[in-house]
Amino acid sequence: MLLKITLSLLGCVGVFVYISQTQPKSSPSFDQQLELNHVQGNFESKPSLNIKNLSTQKQQQWQDFQETQKTPLKTPLSLTQETVTQEITSSQPKSPEPIEPVAINNYMTLTATEKTNQLGNPIYHLQLYAKGQLIGVYPTVTGKAKTQGKNRHQAGSKAPLPNGRYSVASTPVAGTDPEVGQLFLPIEPQFATGRTALGIHYDPSFEKSNGEDGTEGCIALTDESQLQQVLLYVQTYQPEYLEVNLPF
């Protein structure tokens, strides 16, 4: 009886061993495989499963990205800084060239000479200055031969105009008297005086024996073409003033 039991047990053990050897072995888990490879020194799993390789790739990609940021982007020629600056500069309105004021050191003077005309009327020089330089001298008369010594500040005296500084009109006006001629350039005394309606014009009666030689106080050119030259000077240089300086 004991022998049968023993034989039965041995038969069960043999069957169990046979079943165990014939069943397929299960594959180790991913963690087990990693541990097994580490123990065996054979850590050569595929790159897709290699955490260390994945980290290294990410770091390399980041470094490559950083390098591309350090390299300046190539800009088309039309958008380079130099071209943009030139376009902005060319599109901006240019400042006008500075214009020198025409009235700086431009002025006129009236001074006496030792000459007289054929009727005894004194000749005075009208002198034109541009930028401080004398550019023209013209013979003129003021007052009449018989009125030279009269009160020069008294209205109606017909004496030469008084000494002092006068402002000069920029353009002439039409003459309103035959003895004034066609054009009359007004001048205005910058001091107190009784004289009015003074100006520069041409004397149609110069050296004529008609009793009208000279003026009633204005400055008169002896030639009509010379008046045109004086008016052109005034238009061009716009004199600051006329300075009258006669000895009496």
Rank of each mutant, 00 (worst) to 15 (best):
247 P>N: 06
10 L>A: 01
177 D>H: 15
197 A>C: 00
96 P>L: 11
239 P>L: 04
189 P>K: 02
101 P>T: 02
168 V>K: 05
36 L>Q: 11
209 S>E: 02
146 K>S: 13
170 S>Y: 13
12 C>F: 09
67 E>V: 12
172 P>N: 07
193 T>H: 06
201 H>R: 03
198 L>A: 00
203 D>R: 01
40 Q>W: 14
102 V>A: 12
174 A>K: 12
227 L>G: 04
46 K>R: 13
222 T>I: 15
65 F>C: 03
77 L>M: 11
166 Y>Q: 03
147 T>E: 02
99 I>R: 07
27 S>D: 12
1 M>F: 03
41 G>N: 07
61 Q>S: 08
234 V>C: 03
111 T>N: 08
137 V>Y: 07
213 D>N: 13
126 L>T: 06
47 P>N: 08
74 K>W: 10
5 I>Q: 01
20 S>Q: 09
153 H>C: 00
132 G>I: 15
137 V>D: 15
114 E>M: 07
43 F>T: 12
236 T>D: 02
77 L>W: 13
128 L>Y: 09
156 G>P: 00
83 T>N: 11
97 E>V: 11
96 P>A: 06
31 D>G: 09
118 Q>E: 14
59 Q>P: 00
18 Y>K: 03
115 K>W: 12
202 Y>N: 00
161 L>W: 11
116 T>M: 10
98 P>A: 05
209 S>Y: 05
223 D>V: 05
130 A>P: 05
56 T>V: 15
91 S>I: 02
23 Q>N: 05
161 L>P: 10
141 V>Y: 09
25 K>G: 04
132 G>S: 08
19 I>L: 10
34 L>K: 10
74 K>R: 08
111 T>F: 06
161 L>N: 06
173 V>F: 09
212 E>Q: 10
141 V>L: 12
24 P>W: 06
107 Y>V: 04
35 E>Y: 08
9 L>M: 04
211 G>W: 04
133 Q>H: 12
58 K>H: 14
166 Y>C: 04
198 L>S: 03
232 L>A: 10
59 Q>L: 15
144 K>M: 11
2 L>D: 06
239 P>A: 03
232 L>H: 13
47 P>W: 11
1 M>N: 01
202 Y>V: 01
243 E>Q: 15
231 L>H: 06
157 S>M: 02
93 P>E: 04
72 P>R: 06
229 Q>N: 14
214 G>W: 05
103 A>E: 14
228 Q>C: 01
132 G>N: 12
177 D>G: 02
223 D>N: 08
110 L>E: 01
4 K>Q: 01
108 M>K: 07
33 Q>V: 13
136 G>Q: 10
42 N>S: 13
237 Y>V: 03
246 L>G: 05
162 P>N: 12
174 A>E: 05
154 Q>R: 14
232 L>K: 11
50 N>C: 13
247 P>D: 01
70 K>D: 09
212 E>K: 07
134 L>C: 11
238 Q>D: 06
188 E>P: 00
175 G>M: 05
61 Q>Y: 14
63 Q>C: 04
225 S>H: 11
88 I>G: 04
145 A>E: 14
226 Q>R: 05
228 Q>W: 10
2 L>G: 13
196 T>V: 05
181 G>M: 04
172 P>R: 09
46 K>Y: 15
243 E>S: 11
247 P>G: 06
77 L>H: 14
241 Y>H: 12
120 G>H: 12
124 Y>P: 00
19 I>P: 00
94 K>H: 10
241 Y>N: 06
